Simulated scan of single mutants.
Amino acid sequence: MSSVSVVIPCYKYGHFLADCVSSVLDEQGDLDVRVLIIDDASPDDSAEAARKLAASDPRIEVRVHERNQGHIATYNEGLLEWADGDYLVLLSADDRLVPGALVRAAALLDAHPEVGFCYGRPLRFQHGGPLPRARTEGRGSAVYPGHWWLERRFREGTGCITSPEVVVRADLQREIGGYDPKLPHAGDIEMWMRLASHADVGHVRGADQAYYRVHGNNMSTTDFGGQLDDLRQRRVAFESVLDKCGDRLPQAERLADLVHTRLARFALRRAYRAYDRGRTDVVPVDELVEFAAECLPGFEALPEFRALRLRRRVGAKAMPYLQPLVLSAVAERGREWLWWQSWKRRGI
């Protein structure tokens, strides 16, 4: 029987712990599962809640930090120092697993030793609301070549994983090391890409694998300055993968070009949309353009920059009112260009 070590970092989330732990130990069928709760010096009663759970079940261990060490150090403590199972899960105390998720993931990893980690579909739910109905009957699995999956990430410039739905092969985790403290907000995507540079990637089909709780305390970047920080963190994450794993990636230079182009386009898109929405006073447009220039020499040739230049000519005050006319004119110009190209192809 495969064994799974589940690390649950906790900071002021003690009121979620009972539900989180129950989803790991009571809803996963016949599987050897152990849990470590690490309380990172919470100022409330989270440590007490964790100890109470441990006292009721020998499969639960608790560590309590005297001083706050931050989430990256806490992750690495659990994954690299404590976990001894065949497979590893990092599960935030405010999230939970779908029934049978670990059984499905373990079966995939058991059947495919070439797979370094697997994931499935997460279900988002609003804090305080009911859990959405989960699919628990899988439709098999898919195995993607690691380098193919990795290229998709570079091409898209973003991740496709939330986090609680991932199960990692422990031997590979120890081989590549832990989370990078230089990436407090993009450590997850960098980790998945490092894993994919060493092994194939599995995907659980049909069934949902985890619940991700949405609330005001999630580590997100919803403010406009935060969106720029998110782009910067993503850039560092992708460049970190190239630096650490470039010798394993024969097309590293092409991957770098792909992601730098994609991130430059993201930045310019956010910049020109600020004009459309009348938010140039709060969106750091100039910094977004500077970021695009840092990512991609010749960024001025991108269609997103041309869109931004047009909006600057219209002006920040007028653009929200004239947006329908501007977009209509751009669309008409695009249709004329396509018409002209069709005539050229006919030799006329």
Rank of each mutant, 00 (worst) to 15 (best):
P320E: 10
G120P: 00
R121N: 06
P9A: 14
V33P: 01
G206R: 10
R205W: 07
F305T: 02
L123D: 05
S197N: 07
D40W: 10
S141E: 13
A47V: 07
S22L: 02
E81I: 12
I37S: 05
R270F: 14
R265W: 08
V289W: 09
L228A: 03
R121K: 14
Q69T: 14
D188V: 04
R345H: 09
Q209D: 02
G70D: 09
G116F: 13
L288G: 08
V35Y: 10
R333E: 08
L79W: 11
E253V: 10
V326E: 10
S220K: 07
R51P: 02
G157H: 04
S92P: 00
H203C: 01
Y119I: 00
R262V: 06
G225M: 10
W148E: 15
A199S: 14
R121Q: 07
V98S: 03
L97S: 03
L102M: 05
G120C: 05
D39G: 14
Q341T: 00
T136A: 03
Q233H: 13
W82V: 01
L172T: 09
L108N: 06
R124S: 08
R213I: 00
C20R: 07
F291T: 08
G246A: 10
L36A: 00
P184M: 15
S92C: 13
M1S: 12
W192N: 05
A50Q: 06
A237L: 02
C118K: 09
S342G: 07
L131T: 04
A111K: 14
L263G: 05
T280V: 02
A293E: 07
R194P: 00
R279N: 08
K317A: 08
T222C: 04
S22T: 13
D57L: 08
R309E: 09
E81N: 12
G116S: 09
D229T: 13
G315Y: 03
R213K: 14
G70P: 12
Q251L: 06
E27S: 13
C245T: 04
A264K: 11
A111Y: 11
A274M: 04
A170P: 01
D188E: 15
Q209H: 08
L228C: 05
V143L: 12
E290A: 15
E290V: 04
G246T: 01
C295G: 04
L231A: 08
A134D: 03
